Amino acid sequence: MSILYLVDDKHVPLYRVMWVAATPHFCGEPDCQREGYYEVRLEQEESVWANQRERDGMLTALDNWQGGMGAPDDDPDGDQASW
């Protein structure tokens, strides 16, 4: 398994990913070129922009890289994490 994932034309190290947007970008600006893309936020306030397929693949890669832990609400015992 690689620790790199291809987003747009960039090989992104999974350990640099801080968060992945759940909804596509929409700002309403007429000249916006990121409408409909998902932001993948990296360390040091950098971002890359992914289409839906890349975003879904990034989430799968992150989950596999972390050992398939899943989201906190996937707990089979029903215990909720206290954030």
Rank of each mutant, 00 (worst) to 15 (best):
M1V: 05
S2C: 06
S2M: 07
S2G: 09
I3L: 14
L4M: 13
L4A: 11
L4P: 06
Y5W: 12
L6T: 11
L6K: 15
L6N: 12
L6R: 14
V7F: 05
V7T: 08
V7H: 04
D8K: 09
D9I: 09
D9L: 12
K10C: 06
H11E: 14
V12Q: 03
P13E: 10
P13A: 06
L14T: 09
L14G: 05
Y15N: 13
Y15I: 10
R16P: 00
R16Q: 04
R16D: 09
V17C: 02
V17D: 01
M18Y: 01
W19P: 00
W19M: 00
V20T: 04
A21Y: 00
A22Y: 01
A22Q: 10
T23Y: 03
T23A: 10
H25Y: 11
H25I: 05
F26S: 12
F26I: 07
C27V: 11
G28S: 10
G28P: 04
E29A: 15
E29N: 15
E29P: 09
E29S: 15
P30C: 11
P30K: 15
D31I: 11
D31E: 14
C32T: 15
R34W: 14
R34P: 03
R34G: 11
R34M: 15
R34C: 13
E35A: 15
G36R: 10
G36I: 11
Y37H: 13
Y37A: 13
Y37G: 08
Y38D: 01
Y38S: 02
Y38K: 05
E39S: 05
V40S: 04
V40P: 01
E46R: 08
S47H: 02
S47A: 08
S47F: 00
S47W: 01
S47C: 02
V48R: 00
V48W: 01
V48T: 00
W49S: 03
W49G: 07
A50I: 06
N51C: 06
Q52F: 03
Q52R: 11
E54I: 02
E54T: 04
D56G: 03
G57F: 07
M58H: 06
M58P: 06
M58V: 13
M58N: 09
T60N: 10
T60K: 13
T60E: 12
L62K: 05
L62C: 07
L62M: 12
N64Q: 13
N64C: 14
N64V: 13
N64K: 10
W65T: 05
W65F: 10
Q66S: 09
Q66E: 14
G67N: 09
G68Q: 07
G68H: 02
M69Q: 10
M69Y: 02
G70L: 00
P72T: 09
P72Q: 04
P72S: 07
D73K: 12
D73T: 11
D73R: 14
D73L: 13
D73A: 12
D74P: 00
P76Q: 03
P76D: 05
D77L: 10
G78M: 03
D79A: 08
Q80A: 15
Q80D: 11
Q80E: 15
A81D: 13
S82H: 09
S82D: 11
W83E: 12
W83T: 10
W83G: 08
W83I: 12
W83Y: 13
